[in-house]
Nucleic acid binder design. Sequence first.
DNA 1: CTGGTTGCAAACCCTTTGCAATCAT
DNA 2: ATGATTGCAAAGGGTTTGCAACCAG
Lengths: 156, 156
Amino acid sequence: MREFLKTKGFKMTPQRELIFRSFFELDRHVSVDELYDKVRQQDNTIGYSTVWRNLKLICKVGLAEEVNLGDGVTRYDRVTQGPHGHLYCLQCKELVEFDVEPVLEFLTVAADEHKFAPDGIKIEIQGHCAKCRKANKKKARPVDQPAAKRLAEKRP
Amino acid sequence: MREFLKTKGFKMTPQRELIFRSFFELDRHVSVDELYDKVRQQDNTIGYSTVWRNLKLICKVGLAEEVNLGDGVTRYDRVTQGPHGHLYCLQCKELVEFDVEPVLEFLTVAADEHKFAPDGIKIEIQGHCAKCRKANKKKARPVDQPAAKRLAEKRP
DNA sequence: CTGGTTGCAAACCCTTTGCAATCAT
DNA sequence: ATGATTGCAAAGGGTTTGCAACCAG
């Protein structure tokens, strides 16, 4: 790792090592805050911006990428073997990956048809995970479905 | 339109009418700022938050939805007939839609396999549109490709 | 040494909200 | 009337940056 960074002109520091280590230990997608909290548990002198900058650095060297779910928080997603989509639970915010290999060609062709040179593809399915749905069933009577209701009504 | 809103308990005002009209005239995806600018040209007394709130309202009644490209700005996308993906040009920020019907079933099955109840699907292809690539070729020598270069180098 | 890195605080910037005045119905 | 809407100004909340002190190479 140290070598890898050196080839790109970056140095290794204790803080950086801790941040990198923490990030790669977690197999979840984390926000700056989350990683900051985790890192703080081991070294409560590290600054927020140090964590932020190192997360950016990890992205810059191609080991992670930003994920934006539209909830106002940027998360950092370790780059794994291949392309993948995200299943995002609107309730517990959990993010799980799934393989999208089978749709890649279709998307590539679609981009091509619009004379678009693709750099990256993002596929997200937002919804509710099994755990949350189970929890909901226990606690409440059948939930009303505002989204579906809205869609059913007529549009101008 | 006035009737449509009335059924939902909302009133029509001159400002609202102008904002709605401007939004639906534009067939692009706009940010609050962009719509604000456009609306201002016709009525320079309208406040920023009025535009913002009405954009939210348009979403609330199901006529548009928020799009988050990760550049820190929320855009508003008119809801059209069916599901569609977005081709997003990283350079000129243009957003064009494309049909994703053919991949819907695959994604539904994928969600199902993870016991996920999908509420919405987002598919984005980021890259460079034909126009920008053309412009780039004229202005510069073959552009270096940091992304490809990065990917080619070894990872730890 | 020398340039990258860190911590802190402050700047940024877009998104939201409180509130009194105003308007639609 | 009466509740929705508007405008302004200010608060929020996450993301970035300036800078002096501090290290790694």
